[in-house]
Nucleic acid binder design. Structure first.
Length: 219
DNA sequence: AACAAGATTCCCT
DNA sequence: GGGAATCTTGTTC
């Protein structure tokens, strides 16, 4: 399948029909925006995302078929928003695969482009890489303090991921690494490389200054 | 009913 | 690099 055919795909198609790790990798470089209640468009390019492979994935919230109101979104059809809260912070996921196949992708970081001034305000003045270089920080920059959009289909929400290949940025290199914050006893899932990042992009969480790449790692 | 453990962030040292 | 803040689930007493 040629990638530029995705331009005309809807979210439901995009977030199914391929393995979730492949979907996750394909999201790197695409624009993610959130339009707030004042009609301000906030967002940037996705530079970091993680795949969660469902019931069999020891690190997934749906591991072993675990299901509760808190992770119901994962069980919804591909393209459904799954917002999870933890320690006063919120995470933005999109469900992947068919209904009742609880896989998903976690968007962990963006390179800010649109509405930067407003996002800085939402982040209490935090600027530079600290603005959006983590999943909780990104949602705070969007001004999100609730699970209000949990369980809503992406196309019926203020969130938007532009699937037009002409609008995306092309990384010089996409690297796969183990996921962040996974300390499971099962080394297979703890070490499996399901986190995808733009190599050398400063907005990737934990990126060291001496690893910063020219042009933020874009071609 | 109490408690530990998370897909984290911030503010120290 | 370590500890606190602080919400929800699942486990155990």
């Amino acid at each position: 399948m040629v990638e530029n055919t995705f331009k005309d795909m809807n979210y439901s198609e995009y977030f199914t029909n391929r393995p979730t790790d492949q979907i996750t990798r394909d999201l790197i470089g695409r624009p993610l925006t959130f339009t707030n209640q004042n009609n301000q468009v906030l967002g940037g390019y996705i530079v970091e995302a993680e795949a969660y492979m469902g019931r069999k994935d020891r690190a997934a919230h749906s591991y072993g078929g675990r299901r509760s109101p808190a992770n119901e979104g994962l069980y919804r059809p591909g393209g459904t928003i799954y917002i999870y809260s933890q320690r006063q912070y919120f995470f933005f996921d999109v469900a992947c695969q068919e209904e009742n196949e609880p896989q998903g992708v976690l968007i962990r970081a963006i390179e800010p482009v649109w509405g930067i001034e407003q996002m800085i305000k939402n982040r209490s003045g935090k600027d530079g890489v600290l603005l959006t270089n983590g999943p909780g920080k990104m949602m705070q920059a969007f001004g999100i303090h609730s699970r209000n959009w949990d369980l809503h289909p992406l196309e019926e929400s203020p969130f938007s991921i532009d699937l037009d290949d002409n609008k995306r940025k092309i990384p010089r290199e996409i690297i796969a690494t183990p996921r962040i914050g996974i300390n499971q006893s099962d080394p297979y899932w703890a070490e499996k490389k399901l986190r995808y990042i733009v190599s050398g992009n400063p907005y990737v969480s934990g990126m060291k200054k001496h690893n910063y790449a020219n042009n933020n790692g874009w071609t």
